[in-house]
Design a binder for these strands. Structure first.
Length: 461
RNA sequence: UCCCCGGUAGCUCAGUUGGCAGAGCAAGCGGCUGUUAACCGCUGGGUCGUAGGUUCAAGUCCUACCCGGGGAGCCA
């Protein structure tokens, strides 16, 4: 008999008929005359209750030994459950133990700490929380593609290995074929001209520069892929390997970019709430009881838009005792961002037109000659969730800014070429996918929203 | 990288003034006629993170290191 996923089974209109479900036992409760097995298969938050009695030939020899973690296949009739806690259950006609578990199976029918679950990442997706995370990641990923596809953005596959140590965006992981002990030397230094790519190469820290190439041919593109930072950051918000979403749009200026970012966040949140109601309810009940209200509020409310200068005025007049003092020209710290979004404006706020001195060389310089067209989307609880900018498309000004920051033009010859051949205003933003999942679910540590997190000192699994 | 906190059974934790290593859950065995993290009884289970030091005696005090967590910085 063909298998039916638990999600499809629980979505049925009414009981009746025979079904086969296959999955892993969440909990097993055995009585003398009856056994209750909760079987989950990952298709949805809930499992289905399988009821097995002595009429099964293997009841004594097999069924009663089934316990948490066992893989089973159950065939039976779908009936309305007389017990509380579930609508349907399966009255088993046959139950096969496909994969028993050894005595030292580490998952129990109780709460485990997330720290412990990280040490058993090969099993933790069987828990409520990590299972829900995987489904939310899936729904959010699909929503991201749908959002851009519906607007005519092309999915551009940007490289993971790169030779440009672009934009000083953190430390890079080196990619090399050399054995460290026998690498060829030249003038006392490793001679990477003999390496695989004929020069130093690294794992990408951003697809932005390549996305700009795409936008200046294809109009609207986006990337959605892994990025890597070799920074020794030990926090609940950083990973060495994370997924980043980066749209880039030609014939688009800063205001259009802010519109895009606002529509983007609202649609992703809306879609995850619609596609994963049980998972999101679980996060609201057990992880953070404000996430549903927060997401609905963001979906319904227009984002506030202010300039960096206005933000500084607000902060200076706030009467708050900040750890980092505020004045025009300093970068906004986490505490400042959170004050703006949580205390003062109480909803998502987009801050634009930052001082040129604290932003990257590729951002479009305003006529005031001291600010650039950068934008950050700040949300309550986490602060910055999106960062982006209109790009500098004027060749002379771009070269001037590169010179000012000591960047070698020959490394960026193709980036500069784009400003010589049919350059147009364009803009784009980036957001860390895991940060968005963290925000949506209320999960405290980013290592628990990534199936296989990479952090300093740890790349197991 | 910096600051703070922690590491005791498979898991979550207690362990008093330095004086016999503990509980709940899990596991094994038995019981229980519909359970919902089921329930009841019994049994097994320990290099107290590692290495030194102080002491008649160290889970407990001291030093170094390792690992984990929270916060900060950097950032996404």
């Amino acid at each position: 008999m063909a298998r039916e996923k638990v999600k499809a089974l629980l979505a049925r209109e009414a009981a009746g008929g025979t079904v086969t479900v296959q999955g892993w036992v969440r909990t097993a409760r055995h009585g003398k005359e009856v056994s209750f097995l909760e079987v989950a298969d990952g298709s949805c938050f809930a499992g289905v209750q399988v009821v097995a009695g002595p009429e099964l030939a293997n009841f004594e020899t097999c069924v009663r030994s089934v316990r948490t973690g066992c893989a089973v296949s159950a065939t039976g009739t779908v009936v309305d459950s007389p017990g509380k806690g579930q609508r349907f259950e399966i009255q088993a006609q046959a139950l096969e133990l496909i994969g028993p578990v050894a005595d030292d199976y580490p998952l129990q029918k109780k709460r485990h700490s997330f720290e412990f679950l990280r040490t058993i990442a090969h099993l933790r997706m069987r828990t409520n929380t990590l299972g829900a995370i995987v489904r939310v990641r899936n729904a959010a990923s699909r929503a991201i593609h749908d959002f851009f596809q519906a607007r005519g953005f092309l999915y551009l596959h940007t490289p993971i290995i790169t030779m440009s140590d672009a934009e000083g965006a953190g430390e890079l992981f080196r990619v090399t074929e050399f054995d460290p002990d026998t690498a060829p030397k030249k003038d006392g230094k490793t001679d990477f001209s003999q390496d695989f790519f004929g020069g130093e190469s690294f794992l990408t820290v951003s697809g932005q520069l390549e996305a700009e190439i795409g936008a200046l041919s294809m109009s609207d593109v986006y990337t959605f892929g892994p990025t890597f930072r070799s920074e020794n950051s030990n926090t609940s918000r950083h990973l060495a390997e994370f997924w980043m979403v980066e749209p880039e749009s030609a014939f688009c200026e800063l205001e259009g970019l802010v519109d895009l970012a606002e529509a983007f966040l609202k649609e992703i949140f809306q879609r995850v709430l619609a596609d994963c109601p049980d998972d999101m309810q679980f996060f609201n009940d057990r992880i953070d009881n404000s996430v549903l209200e927060t997401l609905r509020h963001i979906i319904e409310t227009p984002f506030e838009r202010i300039t960096y200068s206005e933000a500084i005025s607000i902060l200076e007049g706030s009467g708050q005792d900040f750890e980092f003092p505020v004045s025009w020209g300093v970068d906004l710290q986490s505490e400042h961002e959170r004050y703006l979004a949580e205390e003062h404006i109480k909803r998502p706020v987009v801050v634009v037109d930052y001082p040129a001195s604290i932003k990257a060389f590729y951002m479009y310089k305003n006529d005031d000659d001291r600010t650039v067209r950068a934008m950050d989307v700040l949300v309550p609880r986490v602060g910055e969730i999106i960062g982006g900018s209109q790009r500098e498309h004027r060749l002379d000004i771009l070269r001037e800014r590169m010179r000012a920051q000591g960047l070698p033009e020959d490394h960026y010859w193709w980036y500069l070429d784009l400003r010589r051949y049919g350059s147009v205003p364009h803009a784009g933003f980036g957001l860390g996918f895991e940060r968005v999942v963290q925000f949506m679910t209320g999960m405290a540590n980013i290592r628990d929203v990534m199936p296989f997190p990479r952090v300093p000192g740890s790349a197991e699994f």
